[in-house]
Computed example of a mutant assay.
Amino acid sequence: MPALDLTASTTELTRQLVDVFSVSGEEAALADAIEAVLRAQPHLEVIRDGDAVVARTRLGRAQRVVIAGHIDTVPVNGNLPARLDDGGATLWGRGTVDMKGGCAVMLALAVELAAPAVDVTWVWYDNEEVDSARNGLGRIARERPELLEADFAILGEPSNGEIEGGCNGTIRVDVTTRGRRAHSARAWMGENAIHAAAPVLERLAAYEAQEVEVDGLVYRESLSAVRISGGVAGNVIPDECTVHVNYRFAPSRSGAEALAHLEQLFAGLPVEIVVADLAEGARPGLDAPLAQQFVAAVGGEARPKYGWTDVARFSALGIPAVNYGPGDPSLAHADDERVPVAQIERVEAGLRRWLTAG
């Protein structure tokens, strides 16, 4: 088991976490290392759930917050071990952005802050980068929801060290047209399902995405064809074609309302619509008193989160939640994944300032 040095700076601790291989499904070694550090802290109660580690204070404070981050990464591609560059200003390597910088900040503060102003439940969880059914935070929410009981939650997803409230929802649907097979030399004897998909693409191309204000933040929606499949052979008129459509919708809509919106968009066309995947969005939750205190302590201006994140899992539990972590989300999963050291330090200072404010 790798030993983590908690006397090092949080940037160095980030490098240590990055250098422990933890591609989704292979997080055990890193979970073991984190658990060992936490069990040595007398002020924390530690619970292991699969390859997720939960640590919480029991101070009897009037309010409790959850601060969570996932420890898995997408596959490595020549970007380990981590390295410092730009005169020590930038840390490069798989997971520096998504999201071991945030996890390192959490670990450093969980050890340091024995008596925060609120009770804190810290969660490092597994399998975020793969199928939602395997998500460690989702597993805890289903099987041990009492571990996530809180008045407010923070997810350490990369947000350039700024607060991003809530998140868009996402729905993927398969829009299928049907036809009749025939030899392509006698095309008039068949019905071409790919040609029949043209009106679907025309409506998508003409669609004007909306900007929707939700609790003071403006979320930008998007609707796109992300894949198209159909065809049998080079000399056969196809009898089926499916346009795979992804709609990122503002958290003012429910998943059911998002589906109804798509059904209305394609109304009148001879298509079948089947939901392939659906994840509800999350409202910003910035009207919660703890959220307002957090924004005041951290500083800056809250922005909307356009992509889907696990804040939606907290929202489903009735817990207002925000994203707050170091790293540019556009560099997540990139081969040149890298995080400015200044962002790691800023997020650490912001969280410490808020958690110690009496």
Rank of each mutant, 00 (worst) to 15 (best):
E263S: 03
A197G: 08
N235M: 08
L355Y: 13
V130R: 11
D119R: 10
A115W: 15
W124V: 05
R203A: 02
V347T: 06
L91Y: 08
T57M: 05
G307R: 12
I71D: 01
T10M: 06
V214F: 04
V53A: 02
T242R: 12
P116S: 01
A225R: 13
D98A: 04
H333L: 09
V232R: 07
D151W: 12
G156Y: 09
P270D: 00
R142I: 00
P251A: 00
A196R: 15
L6F: 02
R94F: 00
G25L: 10
D328A: 00
P2H: 08
L17R: 07
G300T: 06
E26A: 10
G102N: 06
L4W: 12
M189Q: 13
Q264H: 12
L351W: 03
T309A: 03
E143A: 12
L269H: 04
G350V: 15
R227G: 07
P270K: 00
L30T: 08
T309E: 00
V37N: 04
D277H: 13
R313E: 15
L290N: 03
L217R: 03
A250D: 09
L17A: 08
E280A: 11
V74Y: 04
R39Y: 02
R139Q: 09
T177C: 01
E35P: 11
I67V: 10
D126M: 08
V322Y: 00
G87I: 14
H195L: 12
R94Q: 07
R338S: 06
A141W: 08
E146T: 03
V23A: 00
S24H: 06
T177Q: 05
V212D: 03
G358C: 09
V118G: 07
G78M: 05
A68L: 06
R352I: 15
F294P: 02
C167I: 12
T176C: 07
V173K: 06
S252M: 12
G255N: 10
Q210C: 09
P42H: 03
E143F: 05
A185T: 11
D151H: 08
E157I: 07
Y207S: 04
L265T: 10
C103L: 08
E257Q: 12
R180Y: 08
K305W: 08
R58Q: 10
S222P: 13
L286P: 15
E112T: 13
E263W: 10
S224M: 15
S159A: 01
L38E: 01
G60E: 07
T11Q: 03
M106T: 11
F249L: 10
S224F: 11
V339H: 02
N77S: 13
A115F: 15
E202A: 11
